[in-house]
């Protein structure tokens, strides 16, 4: 039986997409966080947003300047402060990048930029970053479903509001094509620019298909 011919996409590229749809994603880059990275990409794409991350920044560029530029060019940012413990590699240190980038976001104070904070454990942030007292923190329990639930609680769309079931479907599509995308990029984990970009486009295509 011949394979069905690929049809042209339902929606053409929109010209009105500006920084409004960009979400700066500030998460730890470690293998234990792989599933949650996919969940964040699936969830962000389900809301019709485009994820941006420091993963995209080439090592040759002045990193801090590019991070600030990424934050400024995004309407929203999501800061996951789950990794506050010491890492295993010697010398053992905590990871300051996530809290530093949250600090940069708050410091830049870009008009109309909204940011949210996510955590694995409830109440831990009161100890790890007490300066955020009074700020709502979304707790995802370190699970895929928890991340999707947090995003559903954080954002509300007036039209095309995704459900958790639809977000899970997008996540499953990412998961099922993940090995192929890694193989195409010659990578072993998703924490590199090409894999991240491919996953974002794949998730966006899946969202366009699944969310009416």
């Amino acid at each position: 039986m011949p394979a069905p011919e690929f049809q042209t996409p339902k929606r053409k590229p929109s010209k009105s997409i500006t920084k409004k749809n960009r979400v700066f994603l500030n998460i730890p880059y470690d293998v234990a966080f792989e599933n949650l990275l996919l969940a964040y990409i699936a969830g962000i794409s389900a809301f019709g947003f485009t994820p941006r991350a420091t993963l995209e920044i080439p090592f040759s560029q002045r990193r801090l300047v590019r991070i600030i530029s990424l934050i400024k060019s995004s309407q929203y940012s999501i800061h996951d402060l789950s990794r506050v413990q010491l890492d295993r590699a010697a010398p053992r240190t905590p990871r300051f990048n996530m809290s530093f980038e949250l600090g940069l976001t708050v410091g830049i104070g870009a008009p109309n930029h909204a940011w949210i904070v996510c955590e694995t454990e409830r109440h831990r942030i009161k100890k790890s970053l007490s300066d955020l007292d009074g700020t709502d923190v979304y707790v995802h329990d370190g699970t895929v479903r928890g991340v999707l639930r947090a995003l559903c609680n954080a954002f509300v769309r007036t039209r095309r509001q995704p459900t958790i079931v639809q977000m899970m479907q997008i996540y499953r599509i990412l998961r099922s094509r993940f090995a192929r995308i890694l193989q195409a990029a010659g990578a072993s984990d998703p924490f590199n620019a090409r894999v991240f970009r491919d996953l974002c486009v794949l998730a966006s295509a899946a969202a366009d298909e699944i969310i009416p």
Binding site: S14, I17, S45, G48, I211
Partner: peptide, 10 residues
Amino acid sequence: VNSAFATPYD
């Protein structure tokens, strides 16, 4: 959120 839904091309 009221902005347009980003297409995969966007």
